[in-house]
Deep mutational scan, measured.
Amino acid sequence: MSIQHFRVALIPFFAAFCLPVFAHPETLVKVKDAEDQLGARVGYIELDLNSGKILESFRPEERFPMMSTFKVLLCGAVLSRVDAGQEQLGRRIHYSQNDLVEYSPVTEKHLTDGMTVRELCSAAITMSDNTAANLLLTTIGGPKELTAFLHNMGDHVTRLDRWEPELNEAIPNDERDTTMPAAMATTLRKLLTGELLTLASRQQLIDWMEADKVAGPLLRSALPAGWFIADKSGAGERGSRGIIAALGPDGKPSRIVVIYTTGSQATMDERNRQIAEIGASLIKHW
């Protein structure tokens, strides 16, 4: 067993022997301040990774656009098919120029040779490549099948209805392509620590998230040296922004954090800054 596999296998073990965790309302004060600064709703939840206990939450059962955070769930569904012998990570998928959609920095470079399922998941999570996500959605049967996968996990809230990039439209009061912070946090925890996926697939999923290259201005910008984070960000229309993450000190994750916002007129930089400040408060009061 590799060191990384050992780390993920012992996530519940280490967490069980940690000192009790206590909620700190100071972080919620910052979440509410972010709402004021952005002029928009902000949803927040913080779960203990081992027990699933909610440590703090704000608007945990209000719907927010998922945006690209759905790509972690998508690759979880792909990995479940791999575990069941219905898919192979090494299978190569070929596609054409007509398949390319807006923001496809990886797939646009491989029109000639195609990409493997493993490479597509890596591109979808680490670079948020939209064509990679659409190609992977095709392998599982489309958005409705991802929703069905989530329902089978016990998540009857999260739903995907459309493809990239239309799913980022974020129309107010439109339930399409949305989740709730509580539902997303619980589902992410199941994917990373539950028995739904094999140990190898859980490790692969967290490795992809740990290698995320496009979430630097968010929670990662607030992390002290030595902290662990595996995350996936999302951005959408109407001032929408979000991030889902597993993080913790001492090089291992111990909490799940989900943050979503929508309806702001603020710039992307300002949305990023507010999420980073929430992260800084979380870490300060850990």
Rank of each mutant, 00 (worst) to 15 (best):
S254H: 05
G236S: 08
G248M: 00
L47I: 13
R255S: 08
E61Y: 07
P65V: 14
Y95W: 12
D269F: 15
L247F: 05
T27G: 10
K144N: 10
G52R: 11
G114I: 02
H110A: 14
G85Y: 11
F58I: 07
R255W: 01
I93T: 10
T193H: 15
H156P: 11
S201T: 11
A123M: 13
S80N: 15
G263V: 07
D231V: 14
G279A: 08
G263E: 10
G114Q: 11
Q203H: 03
P143D: 03
P249H: 09
E175T: 09
G39T: 09
E108N: 15
N272M: 03
A245P: 01
R159C: 11
L89A: 08
R238D: 11
V157D: 11
M209L: 11
S57L: 11
Q37W: 06
C75F: 00
T158H: 02
N50M: 15
E169M: 10
Q88P: 08
E35P: 01
I244K: 00
D83I: 07
F58T: 07
A183Y: 14
D207S: 10
G248L: 00
E108D: 10
S201Y: 15
M127D: 13
K190G: 11
R202V: 12
L89C: 06
S128Y: 00
D33S: 04
T139C: 15
G43H: 00
S128F: 01
F228Y: 06
R189T: 07
S264P: 04
L247S: 02
R81W: 10
K144C: 08
R189N: 14
H151G: 05
G114S: 08
D177K: 00
H110T: 12
L146S: 02
L28A: 08
A215R: 15
E164R: 00
D129K: 00
L196C: 13
I278P: 01
R273L: 06
H94V: 04
S201P: 11
L120C: 07
P165G: 11
R202M: 07
L135P: 01
R162L: 05
E164L: 00
N130L: 01
S104I: 02
P165K: 15
E26A: 13
A185M: 03
T112S: 10
M184A: 05
W227H: 02
I229S: 03
V29S: 15
G39L: 13
L197W: 10
T107V: 14
L199Q: 07
E87S: 08
K190V: 11
E169W: 07
L89V: 11
V42P: 00
R81Q: 08
R81M: 08
L146K: 00
L167K: 00
G76I: 09
L146A: 06
A185T: 04
T267P: 08
E175Q: 07
L199Y: 04
M127V: 10
T198S: 07
R241P: 01
N152A: 11
N134T: 07
L47H: 11
D36N: 14
T186W: 11
L197G: 07
E145V: 05
A182G: 12
A276N: 10
A222I: 15
K232M: 00
A246D: 04
V29G: 13
S264Q: 06
S264C: 12
P181Q: 01
I93K: 15
E237W: 13
I229G: 02
M127C: 06
R91W: 12
L135C: 06
P60S: 11
R91I: 07
L146R: 00
E61I: 06
H24K: 09
A124T: 11
A215P: 15
G142W: 01
A148V: 04
A266L: 05
Q274F: 06
R91L: 08
G39E: 11
H94W: 06
K252R: 08
S51N: 08
R159P: 02
S51C: 05
T27F: 12
P249I: 11
R273A: 08
V78Y: 03
H24L: 11
V42R: 00
G43K: 00
T158A: 08
V106H: 11
T261D: 03
A276I: 05
P25D: 05
I206T: 08
G39M: 10
V214N: 13
E62N: 04
S51P: 03
T138E: 15
G154H: 05
N152W: 08
H285P: 03
A235L: 06
L137A: 08
K232N: 00
E62Q: 04
G39D: 12
L219G: 03
L247V: 06
H151P: 05
T267K: 10
A215F: 15
D212N: 15
L47R: 06
R189P: 02
P105H: 04
L49Y: 12
R255P: 01
T193N: 12
V258A: 04
L150T: 14
L199T: 06
D174Y: 03
G234L: 00
A84I: 14
K232R: 05
A211Y: 15
T126D: 05
G43W: 00
E195C: 14
R162V: 02
H24Y: 09
G154A: 11
E175N: 06
L111C: 09
R273W: 04
D33A: 04
N50I: 10
Q265S: 08
T126W: 08
V78L: 09
D174C: 05
V214P: 14
M268S: 12
P143S: 10
M115G: 03
W163C: 11
S80E: 13
D113Y: 07
P65Y: 03
N152R: 10
I93Y: 06
Y260D: 01
G263R: 10
A185V: 13
T186S: 12
E277H: 10
E210Q: 13
T179I: 02
S201N: 13
K109H: 13
M115A: 06
V31H: 00
G226R: 05
R273M: 10
V106P: 02
S281C: 15
R92L: 12
K190Q: 15
V101M: 14
E270Q: 03
V214Q: 12
A215I: 05
V101Y: 08
E56N: 10
G216W: 08
E169C: 06
D161Q: 05
I125L: 07
E46V: 08
D99H: 12
F70R: 00
L137N: 12
P25A: 13
Q97I: 04
H285D: 09
T178N: 03
S104N: 02
Q86N: 15
V29M: 12
V82W: 12
M180V: 12
A245R: 00
Q86W: 13
A215L: 04
D36L: 13
Y260H: 01
P143Y: 06
S281I: 15
L223T: 13
T187S: 10
L38K: 09
D269P: 10
I283H: 14
L146G: 05
M66F: 12
W286A: 02
L74P: 01
S122N: 13
A200P: 11
Q88G: 10
E46F: 07
D113L: 04
S96H: 10
G239P: 01
E26V: 15
D99E: 05
A200S: 09
D36S: 14
G216Q: 08
L160Y: 02
W286D: 03
E56L: 07
Y260V: 08
T198P: 10
H24A: 09
H151N: 09
A170V: 12
A148E: 04
L137G: 05
D83T: 07
M66K: 00
V31M: 06
A200F: 13
F228W: 10
R162F: 04
G142N: 11
A215K: 15
S122R: 10
N130C: 06
P249R: 11
L199M: 10
T198H: 08
T267R: 06
S51Q: 09
L282Q: 14
A280H: 09
A84K: 15
